[in-house]
């Protein structure tokens, strides 16, 4: 094998493995939150399921609806396999995203998506577990609704709570579903 071919194979292997934003073991962990139906939940509330976790907020006009659409499409592309996945949208804006606000918002995207929120402390703990950064961004005008800068990666966790992979914003539902299907097929 020539050096060029070896290099190409190495690059391909790295691409297939996917980039790790931090050590895999660092991503994920326990959380206590409230779902959009008003039920108290933890990371153990979805036994046997892979979790697809995305952090955002319902006042986010551009990116969050786009990514929630991708998550919905991912579940649709997965077909029967979607039953092995629970997609979670965790709010980084507990001040405005009450369970009632999430209940009004979530069904617009996919019936299987679950929105989670909590006290500011609960949300901060969940975000820290997932290495998610969030911060209110400066307002453009007085009285304007604030925006929140936030990590916009989607995390795939296995049923044991171990980090499997992450997806970056801009990947389509079909691409995400194909990667997940491969993971499910190995299991």
């Amino acid at each position: 094998m020539s050096i060029a071919r070896f290099a190409a194979a190495l690059v391909l292997a790295l691409l297939l493995a996917g980039p790790a934003p931090a050590r895999a073991a660092d991503i994920g962990g326990p959380f206590t939150l409230t779902d959009h139906h008003g039920n108290a939940v933890t990371e153990a509330s979805y036994p046997g399921k892979y979790l697809l976790v995305f952090f955002g907020y319902t006042y986010c006009p551009d990116v969050c609806p786009t990514e929630l659409l991708v998550l919905g499409q991912t579940l649709d592309f997965l077909g029967e396999d979607a039953a092995r996945i629970q997609a979670l949208f965790i709010s980084v804006d507990p001040e405005r995203d009450t369970p009632a606000a999430l209940a009004e918002y979530m069904p617009n995207f996919h019936p299987a998506l679950i929105g989670l929120t909590g006290t500011p402390e609960q949300v901060a703990k969940a975000a820290k577990a997932y290495r998610v950064f969030f911060r209110k961004s400066p307002k453009a005008a007085e009285g304007e609704a604030y925006l929140v800068d936030h990590t916009s990666l989607v995390y795939l966790m296995d049923p044991e709570g171990e980090f499997v992979s992450h997806f970056v914003f801009g990947q389509g539902g079909e691409t995400v579903a194909r990667t997940i299907a491969k993971v499910l097929a190995r299991d």
Binding site: P21, V63, S137, L147, T151, S152, F169
Partner: peptide
């Protein structure tokens, strides 16, 4: 506005 991603963090400016 523009959504800009840096190190996985999305900001709108």
């Amino acid at each position: 506005h523009e959504s800009l991603m840096k190190n996985g963090v999305m900001k709108m400016r």
